[in-house]
């Protein structure tokens, strides 16, 4: 579970934000304005942002500050967008990277 932290003993309370809606892999979800794509998905309990292009292993955020490029998603048809650096916007269409067919590897077999 990835819960929002509304109150905090030292930091100010989270000022509940405007709700916005967006889609991830065709599913309509809602988040707060000010969320990154990564936190918007975490708040919806979605951690897997893509699957490794060759092995198909699931990947989520690792560094959360733009260095590792693990969080790449496709946003409104633009591939390779870092989910941890990009704010989610109303009606954004986000899709996650999939394992690519590997016709030349492993004798051409193509299974997960």
């Amino acid at each position: 579970m990835n819960k929002r932290i509304y109150t905090h003993p030292i930091l100010e309370n989270l000022s509940t934000n405007e709700e916005i809606s967006f889609s991830f892999n065709s599913e309509t979800l809602s988040a707060y304005k000010g969320d990154t794509i990564a936190t918007a998905l975490l708040a919806n309990q979605i951690r897997t942002l893509r699957y490794h292009e060759e092995s198909g292993s699931p990947r989520g955020i690792y560094c959360n500050i733009g260095h590792c490029f693990e969080c790449r998603v496709t946003v409104n048809d633009y591939p390779g967008i870092r989910a941890c650096l990009t704010l989610v916007e109303e009606d954004m269409v986000i899709t996650s990277g999939k394992k690519l067919p590997q016709p030349l590897k492993h004798g051409g077999e193509e299974n997960a």
Binding site: M1, N2, K3, R4, I5, Y6, H8, L11, L14, D35, T36, T39, L42, A43, R47, T48, L49, P58, R59, G60, I61, Y62, C63, N64, I65, C68, C84
Partner: peptide
């Protein structure tokens, strides 16, 4: 997924306010 750098957890927790 769910494994992250310690700095990632810091930003989530203190800046983005999600556990």
């Amino acid at each position: 997924p769910g494994v992250m750098s310690i700095g990632a957890a810091q930003v989530l927790t203190n800046v983005q306010r999600i556990q």
